[in-house]
Design a protein around this nucleic acid. Structure first.
Lengths: 198, 198
DNA sequence: TGACTTATGGAATGGTTAGTCCGGAATTTG
DNA sequence: CAAATTCCGGACTAACCATTCCATAAGTCA
């Protein structure tokens, strides 16, 4: 059943992707409605609000889009065809590749776009925080899997290693923004994994 | 020679410290002039601009204050009475203590307050970036010192280790904001240093 | 005392913010 | 064809933004 009424003049999906890149690059608060409207093809306020509801609602959509594409690490971590160590390494490499890619903003949207906020945007900060927690939990699960199948030492260091990896991962967002090269970060990631060699 | 003219009615030094806490907690852009004026004792616009020049100038002062006090890690790293490893460990512990302290905002001001910015606040972002670089260079120097005196292996991994530590350190800012406990982060930091035990 | 200097309260600046509203245009359905 | 539905351009709102201005107050110096 086709939709009745006048058809939308822009592609909503690609608009969300463009908005995602804007929020990713500038953060939630520094991205203004007029930024968004002009980037998404010069649409009017009426069109914007009819299509997306509000700036916050669009941000939420963009963050979900990000976590389902560029920021997607969970699938790698859960890939049972890889050993835990291979999965962790693949996750780090994938993340570094995306964070340092020139085809998208530097760094990680979930880290950069919603840590520091005005009080009345606390809900935006919480969305980003939840997104970060999803990744942290997936890292913990991956390590637990390695411990369970005997691949990793069962010496009580699993929680610490989760945080070590996760902190490093989040630091990458800043390093990428600061212009540290992909190659240097990759070497650093491999060195970090050598913790498992003891 | 005493200053002439009507004396200022507030303590400029303590005002800078209070402003530092505000910028630290909320970032540069989310901290508004009215936030600042009311927090610094309800002073007027005239008094604010007479004392500090502009919002950006005050931010610069606050960042310098931060780097000279709470964010001060360079002195620890250069402490020649400590071995390189001891210095690195002391630096990490000090940083975690401050970033997770309840007596000041969570996380690191140099990381949180100036990564994501509007285009016309690019100079603010650069101030914060320079502050971060100071710490990174100090870490590199400390590791170089350890290599030079034979304490650390001279196997070409120094640059990677600098980045590994520095990325972890910056990730701490996010973890602290996300409510990760001090104790867990300290365990994680010690695990990270075990890279040196190979 | 009077000249000078600096700080203060408060009003006013021009610009931007997110969001609303309305009249008209474009489409589907009957 | 007419009715119903949806979208669009653009004017509009009310709040907030950093900053400036001015008359006045409170000091020092000679």
């Amino acid at each position: 059943m086709a939709r009745t009424g006048r058809p939308r003049e822009f592609d909503r999906e690609s608009a969300v992707r463009q908005a995602m890149n804007l929020f990713w690059a500038k953060g939630f608060e520094s991205t203004s409605l007029s930024d968004l409207k002009s980037t998404l093809g010069g649409l009017s306020s009426a069109s914007f609000y009819a299509a997306f509801g509000s700036k916050k609602a669009l941000y939420e959509e963009c963050l979900a889009e990000y976590m389902g594409t560029c920021g997607e690490l969970v699938a790698t971590l859960r890939d049972e065809s890889l050993s835990a160590r291979e999965a962790l390494r693949a996750m780090l490499w994938r993340s570094i590749e995306i964070q340092t890619s020139r085809d998208s903003p530097l760094g990680c949207m979930a880290v950069l776009s919603g840590i520091v906020c005005d009080d009345d945007n606390a809900d935006v900060a919480e969305l980003a925080r939840n997104a970060r927690k999803v990744n942290r939990d997936a890292i913990a699960d991956c390590i637990a899997r390695g411990v369970a199948n005997g691949e990793l030492a069962d010496d009580g260091s699993a929680e610490a290693f989760t945080l070590t990896l996760d902190s490093f991962l989040k630091g990458l967002a800043v390093q990428s923004r600061d212009g540290i090269s992909r190659e240097a970060l990759l070497r650093s990631a491999d060195q970090l994994l050598s913790i498992l060699d003891r």
